[in-house]
């Protein structure tokens, strides 16, 4: 942190700005080629400023952009949390026991490739409520990466660590808390990082289907149906920034819980 203003930081910022300028340039070019069918960056910026007026507005007919964003994040958070609570213990069990692996793995292999959106109508049928169905869909799609990575972590515990446990007579609880969980944790976090990424992609699609308050609904209703391509672009930018911030958080966690051998 002390080197925040170092040359290295300045160079990184320089590259970042260069990337953004190139992206803006391409965007401006596309705007020109489509004769402003796709609005220019500047026109979009104007709409963006308009959209972020009164971000926390929460009236019955008028919702601020932050209210929508937080509503989407809350659904992702609940679905992701429940999915992880379900996936981590089952994944660790699969990784620790060959029998559990052979029983559970076929189910995982069949259910994993199913598009998360296919679970939405099932959720709707079960809960008779579209926000709950969205959460259900997020829950399902957050299970697989975490489960698979937790299972991989648990199954790759080195024999050396197991020998320590045997030689000193670790109890089951000691084995779980001192060896299995710490060893698997970096793998679990990798799974969580993949899960949250998928969840964030899926929630937008889910909200387009389900309606209600959220970013997906904003893209569809106010952007497409409202005839404002600029609003669609604004939503894409917000979704992108929030998604990359989520990824940054989990990358940070990953670094924090990795250890040198």
């Amino acid at each position: 942190m002390k080197n925040l203003f170092s040359i290295k930081t300045a160079v990184s910022v320089g590259y970042f700005v260069a990337g953004m300028v190139i992206m803006g340039g391409i965007w401006a070019l596309i705007a020109k080629l489509t004769k402003n069918e796709i609005p220019t960056p500047l026109a979009t910026w104007a709409v963006f400023k308009e959209v972020i007026q009164q971000p926390f507005q929460n009236d019955a007919d008028q919702k601020g952009i932050m209210t929508k964003l937080l509503s989407s994040l809350a659904r992702v958070g609940i679905g992701f949390g429940l999915g992880s609570l379900f996936a981590i213990p089952i994944g660790l069990m699969m990784g620790s026991s060959k029998i559990a692996m052979r029983i559970i793995n076929p189910m995982v292999q069949i259910l994993k490739p199913v598009s998360p959106l296919a679970w939405f109508p099932l959720g709707l049928a079960i809960f008779q409520d579209s926000p709950k169905a969205s959460i259900f869909m997020i829950f399902i799609c957050c299970i697989w990466p975490t489960l698979i990575n937790a299972a991989f972590g648990a199954s790759s515990i080195p024999q050396d660590h197991k020998n320590v446990s045997k030689a000193f007579g670790f109890s089951t609880w000691s084995y779980l808390s001192k060896i299995l969980l710490p060893f698997s944790l970096p793998h679990i976090i990798t799974g969580l990082r993949l899960s949250i990424g998928i969840a964030w992609m899926v929630i937008v699609a889910g909200e387009m289907l389900s309606g209600g308050i959220g970013l997906g609904n904003f893209v569809w209703e106010e952007g497409f149906n409202g005839g404002s391509v600029a609003k669609i672009l604004v939503a894409i930018i917000i979704i992108g920034i929030v998604g990359s911030l989520l990824d940054v958080c989990f990358t940070w966690l990953q670094k924090k819980f990795s250890y040198a051998v």
Partner: peptide, 9 residues
């Protein structure tokens, strides 16, 4: 043990 087998965490 041969390779120390300390728990790295």
């Amino acid at each position: 043990f041969q390779n120390y087998s300390l728990l790295p965490w």
